[in-house]
Amino acid sequence: MKRLLTIFAAAAAMLTLGSAKASGELFIYNWTEYTPPELVEKFEKETGIKVSVDTYDSNETLLAKLQAGATGYDLVVPSQNFVPIMIKEGLIQKVAVYDLPNYKNYVESWKKPEWDPEHEYTAPWQWGTTSFAYHNDYSGKGESLKEFFEPSEELRGRLSVFPTPDEVVSLANIYLGIPFCSEDAKQMKKVQDLLVAQKEFVVAYNNETMSDLITSGEALMTNHWNGYARLGRLAGAPINYAYPKEGVVGWFDSLVVPSSAKNVENARKFMNFMMDPVNMAILTENQGYGDAIKGTAQYYSEELKSAPEVNPPSDLNVVFAPTCSPKAQSLIDKVWTKVMQ
């Protein structure tokens, strides 16, 4: 009888231990290859919280998933122009980021962004630019968006463009001098004509293997993100990220907590963890985009400090896309469907 009791006690102890462990969980839903494993391990070690990471490939996918009622995620990472939509649709919740201890590290110039002026919802992840990159063998210098949108003959069948309209149309707007989210059908017709003519030169619409396309020589020029182009270059691709004189599209990705999150406090712990310069520097080192946290630069490697993808010319025109009205969005979709059919 006594032995039986001991077994029961042991089993009960194990059960409680198990459940104590299970309560410390955090589910992160982030872009592909955007969550460095060493950062996750460090967080797990410091807090004892078990982290799981799932991935998506575009803001649109994330929004569609949340709209369809996906539950179980505690943190997601939308870009700035999707944050207002998620707030409006009630998909994310207020978590008082301004109240977190490490909020003091937020770079002043990034504070009060228009998508979340009071920092009720968003904690910083990374910000970067969308432009194009070119092969060492390409004869141009990537000085103008003209080289990308109205390519020379050497790029026929050697040009790669992103497969979603979001950033491509924004970049075309910058080139044509048309405001973002235009509701003017005539202006959007110009964008359409430009993209239809560009298609003659396109070998593939791709936003995953751009650097591989350059390495194999399948493409001489491709749409690219600055940090991802750096990773390609470090892996041996003969690639150069371009800073065209007309400007580039900027984006700012933030950590937000979905309304359906189960581990809100753990999500806030992770937000606070990421606003510590030591941890943010690990992310920036790994990804090569920009961060919005003070004191990270002292932890950067020499390579990162001198990487051309992270150090744009000082006069670069970076334009952040706002959230488009439904009318503007439907024009963008019409343009894109025309280009694709």
Partner: peptide, 16 residues
């Protein structure tokens, strides 16, 4: 992905 197929077109409607 240069020419939309029915499958990609459906996917485009639910995402972008």
């Amino acid at each position: 992905g240069k020419k939309l197929m029915l499958g990609s077109l459906v996917q485009f409607q639910f995402a972008s």
